[in-house]
Design a protein around this nucleic acid. Structure first.
Lengths: 137, 137
DNA sequence: CTTTGTGCAAACGATTTGCAGGATG
DNA sequence: CATCCTGCAAATCGTTTGCACAAAG
């Protein structure tokens, strides 16, 4: 397991992409929060004290980070694209009271059998999306 | 099991909403296609011969149909909201070559055990989203 | 005849693009 | 020092809204 800083440096280098402070900041921010923020939330957070990043850069950086596999998109609500720096396979739970999104460990559904699917389908990845109510609601 | 026409009439009536030709057309179109079209695709399809519907009406009709539970949204790609008139619980498969979306029968994952989840979470619904390659690709 | 829905066009919010200047390797 | 990235602003896309007219009950 690599340290986060090493991980982004190594990954971007291997794809011959530049390691810029902006990309680094976006990735670090995403790693340090447990919620699954939108592009806008990351922008607000990073520009809290001083406006350092433009919103175009956020979107471009997130695209880049997604393309190299450092972050993934989480699509649970209409019109809302969230980001997650946890690229290990896992599932998601969304509370429809407070909107909070929680990671669900991969092992929770390790007994999922994919062999009952119609033949001809090759599965690359899958994810269980759960909606409900969290303990605070 | 009701006939489609009866189902929309009965459902809208019970909510004291009007049964308009536009809502009827949107719902019928959705029932008659096996793909999971976007609002725009439905609009194009219905306006193929003669422009009958405005795009605002499509969006409003889809909202209404969703609110009364006649259709549901399918969110699998970023920025793309698809609609599905199959409101029975089921899962989805998306081919990342051709983008085709297939329904996966609910029974395929009937062995899913939700009791391994962290306690405190109340599950209302869940869905398995599978990505892969379909038989044509 | 009262209420609700539609059509049109304008507004809107999130994301993308073009271009010139700046930073990176 | 050549290339790639950022910032800014304008453009674009999908969706929503405001308002006057039309249709439904």
């Amino acid at each position: 397991m690599l340290k986060p800083a090493d991980k982004i440096i190594q990954t971007l280098k291997s794809k011959r992409l530049r390691i810029t402070p902006q990309r680094f900041a976006v990735y670090s921010n995403l790693l340090n929060r447990s919620d699954h923020p939108t592009a806008e939330q990351i922008l607000k957070d990073l520009n809290q004290d001083t406006p350092t990043l433009s919103q175009a850069t956020i979107y471009l950086s997130l695209q880049t980070l997604r393309d190299v596999g450092l972050v993934r998109e989480v699509l649970l609500e209409e019109g809302v694209c969230r980001y997650d720096a946890n690229t290990e396979p896992h599932h998601h739970f969304r509370c429809h009271c407070c909107g909070k999104i929680e990671d669900i460990p991969w092992e929770s559904f390790s007994n999922l059998s994919l062999d009952k699917l119609r033949s001809g389908l090759k599965v690359d990845q899958y994810e269980v999306i759960i909606q409900g109510q969290c303990d605070r609601c």
